[in-house]
Design a protein around this nucleic acid. Structure first.
Lengths: 156, 156
DNA sequence: ATAATTTCGGACAAAACTATCCTTAATTAG
DNA sequence: CTAATTAAGGATAGTTTTGTCCGAAATTAT
């Protein structure tokens, strides 16, 4: 029984790094980037199947990625999505488009007035963590070689 | 107008590091630890006032911290909460008690089967971030000198 | 043109998280 | 013993996030 449960998506997902929508978004971008290396445009159904996400919800996320100029969309048969090549799209762009800048910019304790000059009690303890996170998000592109190599591992 | 809004707690808080409840919990623990250094027991109303949190919700969080053996509670006049001194309580304990281990243990993309030997596309990119985060949570005690010094900065 | 396909977008539903209300139980002081 | 005070806990409401449904708009192929 417990083995079965562990196979399913657990319900309580309080306090994860990214929202569920953002997890999907990152997977989407990696899958589309990988597809694109082979000159292929990617449709909703295909990406939904590839990453194991609910179709209608995935459509909403795709729309948001288009609105944020990370993707270009085309309708009709042969339609689908491609990366907006005008940008070198980083994980940072994807996360900001879906989750906003809270994880990156906000105080760990949610204080508005927290800053380097007026730090909350844990501010200094988390400086390295937040720097490391920001650096990782900024320096990793969605079409990074290392990411595309892992394209097969996008769903359970 | 925008200045006024920035003073208030913004509603949309998608993708922050910790849940709202967990933010409160960390503040609670720091405040109680600071109070305790002066030999004082801390009541619900006092801590609610100190950290600027909703009282009934804060009560629930305190209950959960008691259930997880991080706090001891006493009823009646002169009642309140103190740290469970049998433990050297770390931030890690507080976060796990409220948010569970998702942030620390789970795959960044939410994959069940992701591991060092079967990594998701971004697994390696986030190794340092997660190590740094885990190390910070494990090595910081709620009665850490540096944290107690910042006890005045717990609400907006 | 017509039909089939695909994205867009509004409305709605379900689940999780945040927050409130109110009664009970325990403890202390008078 | 009684009244006052404080935590415990069940029930419920509000908000956000996640997820679904369905019709409209655009594009392609026949």
């Amino acid at each position: 029984m417990s083995e079965i449960i562990s196979e399913l998506d657990s319900q309580k997902k309080l306090g994860q790094m990214f929202s569920r929508a953002c997890e999907y978004a990152i997977k989407i971008m990696i899958y589309i980037a990988a597809n694109e290396q082979e000159g292929k445009r990617t449709g909703l159904k295909e990406v939904t199947e590839a990453i194991g996400s609910p179709e209608a919800f995935t459509a909403k996320i795709l729309q948001q990625l288009v609105k944020n100029d990370l993707l270009l969309s085309f309708r009709g048969p042969t339609g689908g999505f491609v990366l907006n090549d005008k940008k070198e799209i980083r994980l940072h762009d994807v996360v900001v488009a879906i989750d906003g800048t809270h994880l990156i910019d906000d105080c760990v304790l949610g204080l508005n007035k927290c800053s380097n000059t007026n730090p909350c009690p844990v501010h200094d303890k988390f400086l390295m963590v937040k720097d490391q996170l920001t650096e990782t998000l900024l320096s990793t592109r969605v079409n990074d070689e290392a990411l595309l190599n892992g394209r097969n591992i996008l769903k359970n």
